[in-house]
Amino acid sequence: MASGWAKEGAVQEQIDSTVEDALKRARDQLPVGVSLTHCEECDAAIPEARREALPGVRLCVACQSELDKQQSVSGGYNRRGSKDSQLR
Rank of each mutant, 00 (worst) to 15 (best):
S35Y: 03
R50V: 03
A53M: 06
S17Q: 10
E8C: 12
L30T: 00
A44M: 05
Q29E: 01
A22C: 03
A6H: 10
S65T: 09
S74Y: 12
P31K: 01
R88F: 14
S85A: 14
S74I: 03
A44L: 10
N78W: 10
Q71R: 13
E41T: 06
P47F: 01
S82A: 13
P47H: 00
E8W: 10
R51G: 01
Q86D: 15
R58N: 03
E48M: 06
Q70K: 12
Q86H: 15
S35H: 02
Q71L: 08
L36G: 02
D84V: 13
G76W: 12
R58F: 00
S74P: 07
K7W: 14
L54M: 04
R27V: 02
A6C: 12
G81M: 13
Q14V: 10
L54P: 01
K69T: 12
C63P: 02
V73Y: 11
V57W: 01
R50H: 05
A2L: 13
S72F: 03
K83Q: 14
S74G: 06
V32N: 06
S3D: 12
S72A: 09
R58C: 05
Q71H: 10
Q70P: 00
A26R: 09
P47A: 03
V32A: 02
E40P: 00
V34S: 00
A2G: 15
S82P: 11
Q86Y: 15
